[in-house]
């Protein structure tokens, strides 16, 4: 299953094969995010029942966020399957060696930023007893969401 998800899109791959690969991959991510959303709801209800007695806004928002991502993946599959020319364009972009090179650089850069933010969050969290450090995780999530923008930017610059 992992092999199927991580399969590399090589130049020369047919559109039909790419369609199968990308559908499988996105279905797997949909399931993953639905499971994450359910787990977040369960953890929120457990915390509410046993510890605090109130809803944790962050966890409630996070579960909605996971469900929205899952829905986005499912809708993107349906949209791409009804637009084969878009799927072909995606295949070309994904198998393009220069794009792959740029993606690798963007990923490496994102990882550096993530590490820096994670270290800052951890240090701040340890040195302060309040719960404010919790919100430093938000930039980490934002950075992950902005990765696509970073790829686009590098694509223009390089």
């Amino acid at each position: 299953m992992i092999k199927k998800i991580l399969i590399k899109v090589n130049p020369g791959m047919s559109d039909q094969t790419y369609e199968k690969v990308t559908t499988y991959r996105r279905n797997a991510f949909t399931v993953l995010f639905v499971v994450l959303g359910i787990l977040t709801i369960i953890s929120n209800s457990l915390v509410k029942h046993y510890f605090i007695g109130i809803d944790l806004t962050f966890l409630a928002t996070l579960s909605n966020f996971f469900f929205a991502i899952a829905l986005g993946f499912k809708l993107s599959i349906l949209y791409d399957l009804s637009h084969p020319e878009r799927l072909h364009k995606h295949k070309v972009i994904e198998s393009d060696e220069r794009t792959q090179f740029i993606r690798q650089r963007a990923d490496a850069l994102s990882l550096n930023f993530l590490l820096l933010l994670a270290i800052t969050a951890a240090l701040y969290g340890y040195s302060n007893s309040d719960q404010g450090w919790f919100f430093l995780i938000i930039p980490l999530i934002l950075l992950l969401a902005l990765r696509a923008s970073l790829r686009w930017l590098l694509n223009q610059l390089l």
């Binding site: 130049p11 070309v92 972009i93 198998s95 393009d96 060696e97 220069r98 794009t99 390089l158």
Partner: peptide, 20 residues
């Protein structure tokens, strides 16, 4: 089966193509 930007970069000499 490459992107148009790759062709632009190759023509301008900004990117060196792989052997393949």
């Amino acid at each position: 089966a490459v992107t148009r930007q790759t062709i632009i970069s190759l023509e301008k000499g900004k990117y060196n193509a792989s052997l393949f």
